[in-house]
Amino acid sequence: MEQKSSQHLSRRGFINLLLSGGGAALLGAIVYPMLRFLIPPKLPEATSSTVVAGNLDEVPPNSGKIFRFGDKAGILIRTPTGEFKAFSATCTHLSCTVQYRSDISHIWCACHNGHYDVNGKNISGPPPRPLEEFTVFVRGKEIVVAKKIA
């Protein structure tokens, strides 16, 4: 009788261990993802319609910078007169990524020597149409680029 009871007890002890251990682990497995979910991610905003293209000091007049806009490339340029402009950096000819050429103040595609002026208009070479233009805002030191709403 004595023996049986102690056996019983150890069996119940084991079950209770399983229950408390399993319960605690599950609670952890539920609470941990929830807490991580609550912590805001590094990028505080959904990124599809606006993106920080760079800082003011990164783009002196007559220069340009490629930035990432989702999975596409964008180009931020500052015209020789100091104005900010941003375009899709995807060349309208064969979708290469364009760049800014300070020597001629053109946006230029290296693949087939296509030229666009600082307004994104195709002016020479094979590009059939202008680059898609984005809207540029300056927020403090940051330059924010947004898709134009049609």
Partner: peptide, 27 residues
Amino acid sequence: LYYRPSAEQAFESVQFIMTEVKFGWLV
């Protein structure tokens, strides 16, 4: 906490939850 109910942002915010927020895809 992350969803935004507007035609401009709803899809993007869900995408944001799915890709940027930790365990967002799971939730």
